[in-house]
Write a protein that binds this DNA or RNA. Structure first.
Lengths: 128, 128
DNA sequence: ACGAGATTTAGAATAGTTCCAGACGAGCAT
DNA sequence: ATGCTCGTCTGGAACTATTCTAAATCTCGT
């Protein structure tokens, strides 16, 4: 998977990518560091950022900024939106077809939209 | 205007709000500080943040996070989207009717969307 | 004009991220 | 398999954006 994108296969990359792929949360870099270092050899903070950047450049994960706090990462790269809960701050996925927009297109004035994910403010399933 | 929202009218608030209302850019807190202090009495950095937070809480401005860098502020609170140019990083407005989505609504699974603004990745008018 | 309480201030403190220079190790060529 | 090369990893310092704190100041109802 990494190899297919022209990235060398290293232990840190495997660890980070499997963690991200295994969770439906949208962990911050710190979450990743904590999880990956939970019971084994340590990954330095700088490495976490390095790896996240590599994976993002390769298109294997996407990073997203939410107004409060740190950048969150998501290994689900198929087109979908994010719902940021105004009550609890959680970030949940929203299936693409559940919020109808053209995936990409040209605005009436000619500007081009290449949206991969939209961020919606709302209320999540628990706080609803 | 400030008074209408139950905020005391102070010189810093007036200065920041007029600056934000006068520009179609989407300035960062630092931009605001620079602009407001350009030729007059100084506003401390902490005050800029204080004021931006008050205004945001009162609904007179909205803050938005873009993946790279600092939070940007916008005094145009009517519903509209933001287009983040992938080439130059600029943030431009997109009229609501130019990108059709329901302003708010309920997803098929019951979660509530209260979107005020969506952030689109794309290419701006200059870089087009 | 006065007083209560909100607001501002400067600077220190914190959080998130990046930079650096050197050590290390993946994978190509042999 | 072995050596080499360069991409990758590391710890720590540095940096940037933002928040905190405690005291000074100012707005506005009375």
């Amino acid at each position: 998977m990494l190899r297919a994108r022209g990235l060398r296969v290293t232990e840190p990359r495997v660890a980070v990518l499997s963690y991200l792929a295994s969770t439906s949360r949208h962990p911050t870099a710190e979450d990743v560091e904590t999880a990956v270092n939970a019971g084994g050899p340590v990954l330095s903070r700088a490495s976490v950022y390095n790896v996240l950047h590599s994976l993002a450049r390769a298109g294997l994960v996407v990073g997203m900024s939410v107004k409060d706090g740190a950048t969150r990462y998501d290994a689900h790269v198929a087109p979908h939106h994010h719902l940021v809960c105004q009550a609890c701050g959680r970030v949940e996925d929203v299936a693409w077809q559940d919020f109808g927009v053209a995936e990409r297109g040209v605005l009436p004035d000619g500007r081009t939209v290449r949206a991969l994910a939209l961020t919606l403010d709302g209320v999540c399933s628990d706080c609803g």
